[in-house]
Design a protein around this nucleic acid. Structure first.
Lengths: 363, 363
DNA sequence: CTGAAAGCGCTAACAA
DNA sequence: TTGTTAGCGCTTTCAG
């Protein structure tokens, strides 16, 4: 049976299609009895209004979009469709989920739902790298993007069509909202804490320099160090520590006895990798060397030792993105705009602190 | 500046609108040079095809939807728009996120993304309880629903319009796919484990009987107990343990010295509540009483003691839902269908077992 | 308060 | 290989 349309409902109710539409969209402008007739006809025919048609007529979809990259997609998916029976012992990997992207997404969703708005989620896939973004852009009134690795021209086009938020991107000159985290405050607090509380003098930075965000953190660290009259490292240890073999240079450093006082990692995932590597090399954290991260992902909290980190308020980031997009109501920004979300030091034990923990609950 | 349309692109490229459409949708049926002309015109005009128009013309949106209830929405949202500075000590609440819903959602997303399909997320809100579901149904080619508390008639209408998956609902007679977890196997394994390994004779069940899924688990437990020649409890302890005051009856039980050997909880969240309550009453787990749950949420893994549970493969659930919906390609099911996803016992320490844990990594 | 009618931007026969 | 054209289902002036 064909899906019921306004025409069917109008006929069943004995009114015009305009009245059917009004009954839903402008209830005040229709007599109550008429409205009742319409609604009852609709129910009888299982009428479900087509959002496509409405969107077309109104020039607005009422949906906000969030576009991710596929980092998170590839790894945990494993064998895509098939179900792999897990060992009893093999707990799901905290390092795969939830990550900071998931928290941003959650904030985005919460903000939209609170407004009664739907969220469209999409993701670049390894095959169609960034191709699908235009497709999703055509479906929404506003779009938030995680780090963009596709063509700049694609982005430019989109930015002229709908409002775009670039997440975790500290700035640029496209007419979009660059929404990032306050690396400045966070990294500064971290350096100060390590220097003042733990007497760190010799601070190294670990992180893949490929990402602008990572480079920014490194630079902030160096400049704060200089400000305090300490020597900043010439360069970062350029490793992401996402693969087991990436700890070669660290191994070398240890072997040569040039381990610094502290290893500041560009993010928690890197820090966890470093923690693993150090354990294998029999280096004690925090006794032999201090290790800290940035992000505040869950896995860091349960690492051993629990990871001192800069807690980014990712959920807040997602929420702001959604709220800002909603405000634009489909109108693209006409010039670059920048906003920042706070980040604060969260002291746990990998820096040498020993926060007292009294558990009053089982968690 | 108005958004560019097929007409604009066609004019710019000196072709007809059909050719523009073909250039995108049926690249093979257009001469390469023509296609190039079209694409270049499109780029020049920042053309972003309207999904509304396409959806209308095709009678299909290409999007799959997932509709949640607002349980997860209300609590963690707190003061909606405002940002509340958290105490240093105040870590995000593991009991609020991630929960099993989040894992299902993740599976749903992964399956869709893998197929290059977008996902539309929406949620009932306290104000518009289940009203919005029809709206979202009009936007998608298939919809998965978490436990439905709205009007049955609404659901019936939807089920005649698009394919619907009911998640965690063990069966019914609507023409939808009821997709649930294999409670039978899981609960049976649990009962057997407690009886055989821990010598439990006197087993109680805790959980709010309001939910069908919970009642089902209780019944399975009872019948397995009977099968084994043990006495099944007459009734469950009908508490959700989501509010602090809900432990009154448990308190009474303890006071009267009628604590059973084991408290089997309808889900992990309840179990965590029970753990808290017992701690307050100074009852030791697992020494004085065994406590187990169902779900396998993250919080249970980090509870103290770590919670023995039935691990539901929620991600798998979401994945199957998405795959099944995609297969239907917009055609509703014509009769009820049922599928089940596996669930297995995950032994940790709250049952009295003491799984050896050797950490080779920091996590 | 209700109806007639003109699009909204795109797809897919069908023709050429 | 490309163009013409008739919808897809809904919203929204503008008349009545």
């Amino acid at each position: 049976m064909r899906r019921a349309t306004v025409y069917d409902v109008a006929e069943e109710a004995g009114v015009s299609i305009a009245t059917v539409s009004f009954a839903y969209r402008h209830p005040g402008r229709v007599k109550d009895t008429t409205r009742a007739k319409v609604l009852s006809a609709a129910r009888k025919l299982n009428y479900v209004p087509s959002a496509s048609a409405r969107g077309l007529a109104r020039g607005r979809t009422g949906v906000l979009g969030l576009y991710s990259f596929d980092l998170l997609l590839e790894h945990p998916l494993g064998q895509p469709q098939e179900f792999r029976e897990e060992d009893e012992e093999d707990e799901p990997d905290l390092r795969a989920y939830p990550l900071y992207v998931d928290e941003v997404q959650r904030g985005f969703e919460l903000a939209c739902w609170h407004r009664g708005q739907a969220v469209l989620l999409s993701s670049a896939t390894a095959s169609a790298k960034g191709e699908t973004v235009t497709d999703i852009a055509g479906r929404v009134d506003g779009l938030a993007l995680f780090s963009w690795s596709g063509k700049l021209s694609t982005l430019e086009s989109l930015a002229k069509t709908i409002p775009i938020v670039m997440l975790s991107q500290s700035g640029g000159d496209l007419p979009v909202l660059y929404l990032s985290v306050d690396n400045q405050t966070g990294m500064t607090e971290m350096v100060d804490h390590l220097v003042e509380v733990h007497g760190v003098r010799n601070m190294a930075f670990v992180g893949s320099q490929e990402y602008p965000e990572v480079r920014e953190r490194f630079e902030i660290m160096c400049s704060r160090l200089s400000q305090r009259g300490l020597i900043a490292p010439e360069s970062a240890i350029d490793e992401g520590f996402d693969s087991p073999q990436s700890f070669a240079s660290l191994q070398k450093t240890v072997a040569e006895g040039r381990l610094p006082d502290a290893l500041v990692c560009a993010n928690d995932q890197t820090a966890l990798g470093v923690l693993d590597a150090l354990r294998e090399l029999d280096v004690k954290v925090p006794d032999d060397v201090v290790v800290v991260g940035v992000d505040g992902i869950l896995a860091g909290r349960f690492a051993s030792p629990p990871l001192t980190t800069i807690q980014l308020h990712m959920e807040q980031l997602g929420r702001v993105a959604a709220d800002q997009l909603a405000q634009r109501d489909g109108r693209p920004w006409s010039e670059p705009k920048t906003m920042t979300v706070s980040a604060r030091l969260r002291v746990r034990q990998s820096c040498g602190c020993n926060p007292t923990k009294q558990r009053t609950r089982s968690l």
